[in-house]
Design a protein around this nucleic acid. Structure first.
Lengths: 344, 344
DNA sequence: GTGAAAGCGCTAACAC
DNA sequence: GTGTTAGCGCTTTCAC
């Protein structure tokens, strides 16, 4: 079954292809008579006409496709939400997204850039699967939008999570519950996570607001995984009574998972004896922990939407500094008042 | 900066566009003189020529793009691996993938199908983000490949995990370690997971091979999440000594996480007192548990590759029955011999 | 060994 | 109101 073309519709309706084109694109609504329009539509329906977007793209010079280059779609559970956000906006506006995963290979990146520009995509998004600062590859169009990463050199539309505000929100949960000895289980510096100093800054700021003197002993660092969190938490819990924390703000949910383990090992209950706040809102971890973890969500879906909106010109972006997307707090059950013994 | 076309290269090299086309596509290598080829290549380089694939596609009637329709990319941590597999193969063969997420909305599905066929994609993959049986939407091309789902009506190329073999492998781990009282923490029937009866079948089969009489009391069902796993495990552990299991094969890693919790609550250690095997190999759960969980991996990456290979015609598929992709066992540290008390 | 010319399926000036 | 026509940028016969 050969594809039916516009000329087939035109022939059947007894009009020219120009007329068919106008009618089907709603352009000549005022110019073409209603009867003709009717006839054209019926003919199109009858022969099962489907426009060929390749031909249209060649003619109009726009493809209604946007390229999305990502460094590693596979290894992060967040990728999906980001793609979903971008995808939704694209679909809402009649666009398709071409996904290319470069796996952090500069070669693949160049190739992808070439392929996409050859494909004449209308816009491009360059996405990182975790918040970082990137060296923008040359060849990336000026108007490409950076998603979950900030350009080392600046001057580009970009969106990243507002980590500092997120850190503040996390610590506020704890301060509000009455805690004064609040630890920060941070990632080790060698991981070079841009979120790390930002969240720490937020932590310090809220302590200051609350008039709490930050205790350097309460700023622990470890590998940002469950095991690291457990070790760090154990060290903290080993502090002499009165100096030990009654609450922990963890760099991520996995470390929080470790903090739970450390507490349980010494017979402490969460949140009875120890309150815990995580970061990331990783479904598989945060929601399944017992008790469910209060945490700060990374706004991946929203960032995906934002990036696509800017890419499609639906929204203006300030190229001077990345847009900071708020990180909402997800209240579950791991925060409570400090135990009476440490009450004051 | 206007795009440079083939005619620009031709002009600069002093040849016709036909010649440029041949040279750049390596078609006329025998026909065009080496000198001319050289000149053309230099000219192309000099003016920074990038072929316009839209025009090429219109002419050649193939776009080197494959459409990948998925039902929910967002909500599963596995989506990424599947996409990565498909993407890798596509890239290895000079293709691009257009990703469309329909969020299980039949309307969006129809739209996506239309958009992709209008886009003249060379092939199509229809992916489910968890193993199920699907009603294939009409309009899906005959030669589309189903990924992680089986067509209700049959007759299509499809790939799904070999759940039964996976179940067998899991239970074999336990039998080999010396266990005879092995429980299966299954998902409740209301979830209608096609994997569930298949894994159960594998479980029964290995018990039979090992000459172990299956005890219906050891086939527990619960919601396939951590909480469900914990409850089911508790019930099992409540069985009178001698009837209680020394090992548990859990429908998924989250339930296994619950089984750990149940064991810990009653002071049992894993794997000292209780051996546990999961399913899925969810990185954030399986690897971070303490001790790390022995589990069966879902071969998402491989299935993604397989689907793309079939889609691109690099591999033949039997349309009569879905291809069963093996699920490898991932040995970590949650399996050991049964405790001496229950030794025999 | 190279070029001229037709045409992929569509849109948009411009005629009438 | 509707049709004619000229391309969009490329590939590919066919002529020379």
């Amino acid at each position: 079954m050969a594809r039916v073309r516009m000329s087939d519709v035109a022939a059947r309706a007894g009009v020219s292809t120009a007329t068919v084109s106008m009618v089907l694109n709603g352009v000549g609504s005022t110019r073409v008579s209603p009867q003709t329009q009717q006839r054209v539509r019926e003919a199109a329906e009858a022969v099962g006409y489907k426009p060929n977007s390749v031909a249209r793209s060649l003619r109009t010079q726009q493809t209604r496709m946007v390229g999305l280059i990502s460094d590693t779609i596979a290894s992060t559970p967040f990728a999906g939400r980001m793609l979903a956000g971008a995808n939704d906006v694209a679909r809402e506006h009649g666009h398709l997204v071409i996904l290319v995963d470069t796996e952090q290979d500069p070669d693949a990146e160049r190739q992808a850039l070439n392929a996409l520009s050859g494909q004449q995509v209308d816009a491009m998004i360059y996405a990182s699967m975790w918040h970082r600062v990137v060296e923008v590859p040359d060849g990336l169009p000026e108007d490409a939008v950076l998603l979950d990463c900030a350009p080392a050199a600046g001057g580009r539309a970009a969106v990243v999570p507002d980590e500092q505000a997120g850190g503040m929100a996390a610590v506020r949960e704890l301060v509000t519950a009455g805690h004064r000895r609040i630890a920060f289980l941070d990632a080790e510096e060698r991981f070079e996570l841009v979120a790390s100093p930002l969240r720490h800054e937020g932590y310090l700021q809220v302590l200051a607001e609350a008039g709490i003197e930050p205790d350097p002993a309460l700023h622990a660092r470890a590998e940002p995984v469950a095991g690291g969190g457990r070790e760090a938490a154990q060290r903290l819990l080993d502090l002499p009574a009165g100096r030990a924390p009654t609450a922990m703000f963890c760099f991520n949910d996995r470390m929080a998972m470790g903090a739970y383990a450390a507490a349980h090992r010494r017979g402490l209950s969460v949140p009875g004896d120890l309150s815990v706040v995580g970061y990331d809102d990783q479904q598989l971890v945060a929601a399944e922990l017992d008790p469910p973890l209060t945490t700060i969500a990374l706004p991946h879906y929203e960032m995906g939407r934002w990036a696509m909106e800017v890419a499609l010109g639906l929204r203006q972006a300030d190229r001077a500094t990345p847009y900071l997307m708020p990180c909402p707090v997800i209240r579950r059950a791991s925060v409570g008042p400090p135990p009476a013994a440490f009450g004051d």
